[in-house]
Structures are given as structure tokens and as C-alpha cells.
């Protein structure tokens, strides 16, 4: 599983990445987490708000910090 957190590096984006990392650690998943801060790349995903979470090229969440429960649900899919 390939997870990308899109964001310019604001506090919310950092928090989103931390939460996802936590879930990866807890579940022992082999998912990779990457932070995308380049504006051009962020725009190419077609999202409006940051932070946004992309899992395997699918937009899961945009413009807010997801709840841990939501993140776990994505992992379970």
C-alpha cells in the first residue's frame, strides 16, 4: 500500500502524517508513507485542500485531518 500525504508542511499536514504513521506502527502494516510538499505535484492530484491523503492513487480525504478511526478503516480495506 502506498500512502501519500499532500500538504505544504503546515501543522495540520504534519499531524495527518503522524497519525498515519501511528496506525502503520500499530497495525504492523507494510504500507509506505510519503509526504508530498511540492505545489505542482499536489495540484496534479486535483485536490483543493491540504492536507489530503492519497492511498494507491485514490483520494481518500481532503482538506482536514482525518480521524484515527477513518485511517484504520482505510487500512482494513
Amino acid at each position: 500500500m502506498e500512502i501519500k500525504v499532500l500538504g505544504s508542511g503546515c501543522a495540520k499536514c504534519a499531524k495527518t502524517a503522524d497519525l498515519i504513521q501511528e496506525v502503520i506502527n500499530e497495525t504492523g502494516s507494510d504500507a509506505t508513507l510519503e509526504k508530498v510538499t511540492d505545489m505542482m505535484k499536489i495540484a496534479s492530484y486535483g485536490v483543493f485542500g491540504t492536507p489530503s491523503v492519497i492511498i494507491d492513487n485514490e483520494v481518500k480525504c481532503t482538506g482536514k485531518v482525518p480521524k484515527k478511526k477513518e485511517i484504520k478503516a482505510w487500512f482494513a480495506q
Binding site: 505544504s8 495540520k12 499536514c13 505545489m39 499536489i42 495540484a43 483543493f48 491540504t50
Partner: peptide, 14 residues
Amino acid sequence: TPFCSCSAVPLFIG
């Protein structure tokens, strides 16, 4: 509309 100035750029492009 929910907006935070850190997402001004993607919003502008969008």
C-alpha cells in the same frame, strides 16, 4: 466555506 490559508494554492489552482 472551510478554508485554511495553507491550502490557498491548491484552492487557487482548482
